[in-house]
Amino acid sequence: MQQLKTDFTSREDMAAYIQQEFPFLESPGGLSPYLGGRKAGLARLEEFKIEQYGKERNFLNGEVSRLSPYISRGCLELEEVRQWALQHPLSKSVESFVSELAWRGFFHLVYQEEGTGILADLEPPKVSLGKHQITLPEDIARGETGLPSMDTLIGMLRETGYLHNHARMYLASYVVHFRKVSWRSGADWMYALLIDGDFASNHLSWQWVASTFSNKPYIFNRENLERYGGAVLPGDPRQGDPFDASYEALAERLFGGEYRPEPRRSSGNYQ
């Protein structure tokens, strides 16, 4: 048993100490922009423009709370954030934000009920996942897939320890459905890197994407990626673009007819 220091002159000083005491940790170098602590969480809550959330939340550059690190680590309690939200006049936007908090409560309920069961398929998949590889390919772990959009998201995840929710879904879908990697491998990888890593929200979201905790697989196409991520992500080469197809064509290519999307499917919202 070793007692650790509690006096530091700066975040950089702390980072160096952590590296010395825990040399096995994955470190991209540099500091995350997310400063830990309740004070920083309350400051973020003050800045959050909840009125804009409903319309912008699916856009990677839209107004989202970025509170999940603070809620997941308990610096802010879910209930106090909910009460804060409900101090605003009830609107679609406020309702939308509260329903996202409810997702967290819902995931925790399932985790409480299932325990470690959430680390394996909760339901039979709705498309074949049995032959997916069980180790995460190195090019994904390193952010060197050759697809600038996905590499940018992986870079953000590694460098900041945070990703917008829609970005998490894009990455999860890319890993599971486009690259045919088991959702569990992807979920463990993301859990490790996220500041807000939480088995319930993380692993159940991956299962939702994979279709082992939902009625269908989650996939996205070029049009969706451009619409919601275009302001943040670099374009991908047009030649061989794996996302550049209609949902019907993508489903045929990825699932061979096991799943047929409804026509005009658009947003990446959870349903």
Partner: peptide
Amino acid sequence: QWRISHHRLQFIYES
């Protein structure tokens, strides 16, 4: 075991 990242550990430490 879970290969937790430096960023997560630092966030916890700061908190």
